[in-house]
């Protein structure tokens, strides 16, 4: 039995409802388990749409998205939601955290909704503590409301949350764009190291080409996507 690829896109097309032009037209994309891929895309290149398709929030107009051998289109909306939280961790550009929850509760959020993440984390609180420590977040911060943290600290909390319960795929959408250059490098190093530790594949999306150093593979939206850029 050959292991299924972590992520497989085939003949993928997406068109917003009411539009005639497709904004996304990707013949193929494949990610292997544990692989770290840098995806370069300017804003408006359709990368956010692509991430929503991979996460199963949007459904493709044509073609298929397969994660861990599961065709997302074959799942019901509710099952897609469960599948996403079971297998995919997400980090966004900013505003990742729920303001009224403590740092620790924010990290534990996926374990609330996903039994698989909860079980894979073992002792969820201990797992969260380990991740937070690895991501250089002092224990004195853990009980604080997320809003009291600096942007850089918040992004590291978001990384810990995306990693807890060891999902197979981590999607990071411009997670460093709110950080200054020096901190971008440090954050990226931490993130990549933690992905290796937990065995997660990393799909890192950014419009900063200089961040692609250290990634096993670099792709560009412009080459992946056959649809004209303006349509996105």
């Amino acid at each position: 039995m050959t292991t299924a690829p972590l992520l497989l896109l085939e003949d993928l097309e997406f068109r917003w409802p009411g539009q005639t032009e497709a904004c996304l037209d990707i013949p193929a994309l494949r990610l292997e388990a544990g692989e770290q891929v840098f995806l370069h895309g300017a804003s408006g290149s359709g990368k956010s749409t692509l991430l929503n398709l991979v996460a199963g929030v949007l459904a493709p107009t044509r073609g298929r998205v397969e994660v861990l051998g599961q065709v997302l289109g074959e799942l019901s909306a509710a099952d897609r939601d469960r599948f996403r939280v079971d297998h995919v961790g997400l980090i966004f550009q900013q505003f990742n955290l729920i303001p009224y929850l403590s740092v620790l509760d924010n990290v534990l959020l996926p374990c609330r909704f996903s039994r698989r993440r909860r079980e894979r984390a073992g002792d969820a609180r201990a797992a969260a503590a380990t991740l937070l420590r690895h991501l250089d977040l002092a224990e004195s911060l853990w009980r604080r409301p997320a809003t009291q943290l600096s942007v850089g600290q918040q992004q590291r909390v978001a990384a810990a949350r995306a990693l807890i319960g060891r999902p197979e795929l981590l999607i990071a959408d411009e997670p460093t764009s709110a950080l200054d250059a020096a901190r971008q490098e440090a954050f990226l190093d931490l993130l990549r190291r933690e992905c290796v530790d937990s065995g997660a594949a990393l799909l890192f999306v950014s419009h900063h080409r200089r961040l692609e150093r250290g990634f096993g593979r670099a792709l560009a939206m412009a080459e992946l996507n056959r649809a004209p850029a303006e349509a996105a």
Binding site: V57, A77, D81, R84, L90, L97, I98, P99, F113
Partner: peptide
């Protein structure tokens, strides 16, 4: 809305 989107990204279904 942002809070609800974060919940959604972390496994909350629209039903939730």
């Amino acid at each position: 809305r942002r809070e609800l989107a974060i919940l959604r990204a972390n496994g909350a279904r629209p039903r939730d």
